[in-house]
Write a protein that binds this DNA or RNA. Structure first.
Length: 505
RNA sequence: GCCUCCAUAGCUCAGUUGGUUAGAGCGCCGGACUGUUAAUCCGUAGGUCCUUGGUUCGAGUCCAAGUGGGGGCGCCA
């Protein structure tokens, strides 16, 4: 029997056995400091020569990063330590002395880390992200289960493309072509007619060659579907849902979010009513024609651009200053300090230069936005910068949305779709709609979208036998993780990302 | 698919208008020292400067093509 680091609070001044891996260590003549990780947390363990004796001390000294050990000792409260506790080792047992570990505690490139994903998962930052991911999953289930939603699964093999737009992965299904599911939505509707309110939670596959920080070829999606719900009720539910998940995650994972340097106060700006914009209003804001609390989307970008320029000037000047300072014979410590700082400044300047290249294009794109088009990546960023909390955009032009979305009464050019856009450039995290419940209109839409009618006969049955107003939405799990953790790239939000150009490990 | 930046030690990066034997930090190994926090200090080892071709007396540096990667856009959620 052994104890987990997570439980140390319960064992203060008591003896425990912790089993885990050496995340980092330092040694001296009389003390060895081991940062132990056991999957539930990190804690420093101290091996003292006068406590364990010479033989065990020598064994401890020969440990390497990622060696596996069991450490028996007393738990001591110490505010200076990560986690707030320290283990004073009395004896140790070695399971395995690790070979030289490739991932050091210093910086690494993304490519290098991606190739070592199976080991990278052990790193503190990746550990924290996966802990948050787990908390999000639990919070999602808690929310829907507490509301009486039934969790059901949609098939992964499907015989046809749901919306006819996306590129799917084809497989051989006993001689027939089957596609990997891109959405469980249509099946969700059938299940909602059986159980009232349901949600699916499963993997989704897209074969687009999308090489961006917000795309994966395989990702997890949550798709609730509710009978007797309209667009407004749908938005109410989405808002309540997102708030509930964020609050629960912050409550349970604050230390992990702090490890990730997540600004939790900023995240908690969700504690306000989410603004609901029609597509037309959203465009006016995007183009800078309409302001929100004195904030203009275009102006904000121009300010960002100006401050990037200024930062480059200042940092270039600082580099010159520091280079001059270390030119002559200076003490080694001084030189090292300045060199480190110069390297950091260069990196920051490179980032600012990216901004200088990108922001003008974004402004251009926002200014020239054509009514009727879908929002591009940068458009979402420009729009959401005006708000602190997620923002809804509803009533979209019919041609750019799926065939199953319900037409706005009296205006068939628009449909009752809704997207929820997260702040700080995280973009769309939820996409949903009220579904078309009229058989005649749906048949017309399927023809307009040039989809094979016979493939949708079963779906049309839902409008033949007790058709009711209903609505639902899809939430991309990884995009939610990305926003809550404030991570740049989706590849860090899933244990083993599958994306364009990445199938290994 | 398009635009753009890049490829130098195990890792992260310097390398001046093209010039003689290509450097630093970290990591590894050896040592010193310390209740240490990515510790610090001294020392050793470690290189197909992505590939191919070209310009040149001379190429890590310039040119072309290829390969691989980062960032942005598109497709898309």
């Amino acid at each position: 029997m052994h104890q987990y680091i997570r439980q140390f609070a319960e064992y203060v001044d008591k003896t425990v056995t912790a089993k885990g891996w050496v995340a980092n260590m330092r040694d001296s003549k009389t003390n060895i400091f081991i940062v132990l990780r056991d999957g539930t947390g990190f804690a420093q363990a101290v091996v003292s020569l006068d406590v364990v004796g010479e033989e065990q001390f020598e064994i401890a000294k020969r440990l390497t990063q990622e060696s596996a050990v069991a450490l028996k000792g007393k738990v001591v409260a110490d505010e200076r330590q990560i986690g707030g506790y320290e283990l004073q080792v009395e004896s140790l047992e070695v399971y395995h002395v690790s070979e030289e570990y490739p991932i050091s505690n210093k910086e690494h490139g993304v490519r290098f880390l991606a190739d070592k994903r199976h080991l990278w998962l052990r790193s503190k930052r990746q550990w924290a992200i996966m802990q948050v991911r787990n908390a999000i999953i639990i919070a999602i289930h808690d929310f829907f289960q507490s509301k009486g939603f039934i969790q059901m699964d949609s098939p992964i093999f499907t015989g046809n493309a749901v919306e006819g737009t996306t590129t799917l992965f084809g497989t051989d299904f006993f001689g027939e072509t089957a596609y990997l599911a891109q959405s469980g939505q249509l099946y969700g509707e059938a299940m909602a007619m059986a159980h009232g309110a349901i949600y699916t939670f499963g993997p989704t596959f897209r074969a687009e060659k999308s090489d961006t920080p917000r795309h994966l070829a395989e990702f997890w999606m949550i798709e609730p579907e509710m009978a007797f719900y309209d667009l407004d009720m749908n938005m109410d539910l989405i808002e309540e849902f997102v708030k509930s998940v964020v609050r629960q995650v912050v409550d349970r994972c604050r230390p992990q979010l702090e490890m990730l340097d997540r600004d939790v106060d900023k995240l908690m700006k969700i504690d306000q009513e989410f603004v609901r914009l029609s597509y037309d209003d959203a465009i006016a804001i995007l183009k800078g024609e309409k302001e929100i609390n004195g904030r203009n989307a275009i102006t904000i970008q121009e300010e960002d651009l100006a401050s990037a320029k200024k930062a480059i000037e200042e940092k270039t000047a600082e580099i010159a200053e520091r280079e001059a300072a270390i030119k002559g014979g200076v003490k080694k410590g001084v030189r090292k300090f300045n060199e480190t700082r110069i390297l950091q400044l260069r990196k920051e300047i490179a980032n600012h230069e990216e901004q200088l290249r990108n922001i003008p294009k974004w402004i251009e794109s926002a200014r020239n936005f054509v009514h009727g088009e879908d929002f591009g990546n940068s458009d979402e960023t420009v729009l959401t910068k005006v708000f602190d909390a997620p923002v809804f955009v509803y009533n979209w032009p019919a041609p750019i949305k799926a065939f199953y979305m319900k037409e706005v009464e009296g205006d068939p050019n628009y449909v009752k779709g809704v997207d929820l856009l997260a702040p700080d450039g995280h973009g769309e995290i939820v996409g949903g709609s009220e579904r078309e419940n009229s058989l005649a209109i749906l048949e017309r839409k399927i023809k307009e979208h040039d989809l094979p009618m016979e493939a949708f006969e079963w779906y049309l049955d839902l409008r033949r036998f007790g058709s009711v107003p209903h609505a639902g939405f899809g939430l991309g799990l990884e995009r939610l993780v990305r926003w809550i953790c404030d991570i740049h790239h989706l590849r860090e939000t899933i244990p083993f990302p599958r994306r364009y150009g990445r199938l290994f490990p």
